[in-house]
Nucleic acid binder design. Structure first.
Lengths: 336, 336
DNA sequence: TAAATATGATGGAACGTTCCACTAATTAAA
DNA sequence: TTTAATTAGTGGAACGTTCCATCATATTTA
């Protein structure tokens, strides 16, 4: 770490000036200030001596750290993992590195950002839904003129660039599948971010001449336990619906789990369709039918967008929506 | 990003030299080269002008980047997410940032490392099992004298510092629980890293006066499909065992899934115990009984160890083992 | 042949810090 | 009172790059 060769040592070894070495190292192809012969000698010496450019020195001179910071709300493990994979693959091609920062509380996020800023990242990404408490502090980054792109559901941070999955299409896809299976009484269990899909959901209902009244719209929380609650409630209400659409797969898995415990057959008595298509969705019993969100693609698209914005920081915010996809598995079937 | 105030601008504003500002900014408490009065004026001006130290300049001078790189083999999403959470929480306290790097192939890993090295990270972490192909290139880092700690199963990279979970105890815990449930014929389905638990497993068998012959030791692959294969094979062999121990929860979930499809009751006909306790383990039906690996703690311990090694790089490799814990859920019961 | 241009290379300032050798002024010790 | 020690602060070199102005030398053009 400390005893690495520098550009001047190579210069000395080869017998040229450090400027020449610098030019060749930065871009061997079009370093017109060096003859092919010296270029070769420099490249060869650099390889032999194990030269690795010092990014700190470059950052200082060029005012660019080649670092991108990602703020991870840490509310869903495997989802973020996939997104980061996509981000990583894109950034790598452009020689940027990803600084990963996980936060829990607003004050912690703030101190993390302060610490991150000493590294002068060229851009910022956020992943996961940005709940109210964090909006102000992240919003401040944008006001300060930082390049920032969020990977999120549609309603996260207004005024910021974002990549998300078309919520209307999610609702449409879910409704279409459920109707095609023959369901006429559907439980729409989605609060928070899930509300955004409702327009698409109802649109599809209308298109297939189904009155909205046949659906029960239930505002709910989120998470595994919330899923269990939804199921219990459905049971207590006397199983009026034959299918349930729920906004994320964690909640859907809660429904499946409680159904298993209460010995209610899925999908015979209740069809379940989720949203996300997480790592575990296909592992559930029965395998969960769900609306797949292209997590890797979201990460990749966000990284591309961020790179664009870093090149042209004054551009107005950009929004990109990707299309979800129905993953037909075993938790949906015809009603009895 | 570009128009941030520097130490000299503060110096000018306050009317002192940049050295004084530097000293105060680095450690306001014990900057004995400044009187309380000037210290206050400097601090105040820094706050007012929004000063943020430039880490690139610091890195250059101090030869320390305050960056730690993590090499992520990307073979299990939510596991890594938890580990990173632990790593992050510890590093944050010491003002280090995490550079997250995901790799797929050896050549890609190599180019990633080269790119990372330009940032001169102060230390390295690896997470996930390091398969053969990657050992050489990661091993080279250690030879080069880099501080490196791996979070892994026991057999990853010899000669390197590591934090892992006591494999003997994993086997012991699993055997004990299965025997306590009353099982006498057990299928031990664990290849690769799972082989390490076998000693502990057999030890517990012996302690409870069970002949090893009552167990079937099956070398297997890994992943969801491998789990399904294990179940099908068990079925074809005529269900000789009443319980199965399998090395990871993904595989266990394959068993559960296939059992559900084939309509075999778990745990009535087959008890299943896994290892990991991933995000999804409790969501399966039935909820998976498993040996919990303290993923967050592993990350935290690895980060602590790395910080120690960064301070004293010449120390011999250090190994730390954490203890697993039985999570008793619904996939294990008494044999019929 | 003289002037203009292209080619290959150089030296040094600058980026924002830290750190060391100094100094000036004040206080304590002899 | 003289000397020594402490306190508060300064100026400048150094870290490893990039980039610009400059300069020979060789080649082309008028």
């Amino acid at each position: 770490m400390s005893c690495v060769v520098t550009i001047v040592e190579i210069a000395r070894a080869v017998g040229v000036s450090k400027s020449t070495v610098s030019a060749v190292m930065r871009d061997p192809e079009k370093a017109r200030q060096a003859s092919p012969a010296t270029r070769q000698r420099i490249l060869e010496a650099a390889r032999r001596m194990g030269y690795s450019p010092n990014q700190a020195a470059r950052s200082l001179r060029e005012d660019s750290s080649r670092l991108v910071a990602i703020l991870d709300a840490c509310n869903f493990g495997s989802y973020v993992a996939e997104v980061i994979h996509g981000v990583n693959d894109v950034l790598r091609k452009h020689h940027y590195q990803l600084v990963h920062c996980i936060y829990d509380t607003p004050s912690e996020l703030e101190s993390q950002i302060r610490s991150l800023q000493t590294h002068r990242p060229n851009g910022w990404l956020t992943v996961g839904h940005i709940v109210q408490d964090f909006r102000e502090v992240i919003g401040r980054l944008i006001e300060d003129g930082e390049s920032l792109v969020q990977v999120c559901a549609a309603d996260s941070l207004s005024g910021a660039s974002a990549v998300y999955v078309d919520p209307g299409e999610i609702g449409r896809l879910a409704a279409r599948h459920l109707l095609e299976c023959g369901h006429r009484r559907i439980l729409y269990a989605a609060g928070g971010q899930g509300k955004l899909c409702r327009a698409g959901f109802e649109e599809e209902l209308a298109r297939q001449h189904m009155p909205v009244e046949t659906c029960t719209f239930l505002p709910v929380g989120s998470g595994f336990e919330a899923g269990k609650d939804i199921f219990r409630d459905w049971l207590e209400r006397g199983k009026p619906e034959s299918a349930v659409f729920t906004f994320d797969d964690t909640m859907a898995s809660g429904i499946l789990s409680e159904a298993y415990i209460q010995n209610v057959r899925i999908p015979e008595e209740l069809s379940v369709i989720g949203v996300d298509d997480r790592e575990f969705s296909r592992m559930l019993s029965p395998a969960l039918t769900t609306i797949h969100l292209p997590q890797y693609d979201q990460g990749a698209a966000a990284a591309e967008m961020l790179l664009r914005r870093m090149r042209a920081p004054q551009q107005p915010p950009e929004i990109q929506t990707l299309t979800p996809e129905l993953m037909c598995r075993a938790s949906c079937g015809a009603p009895r």
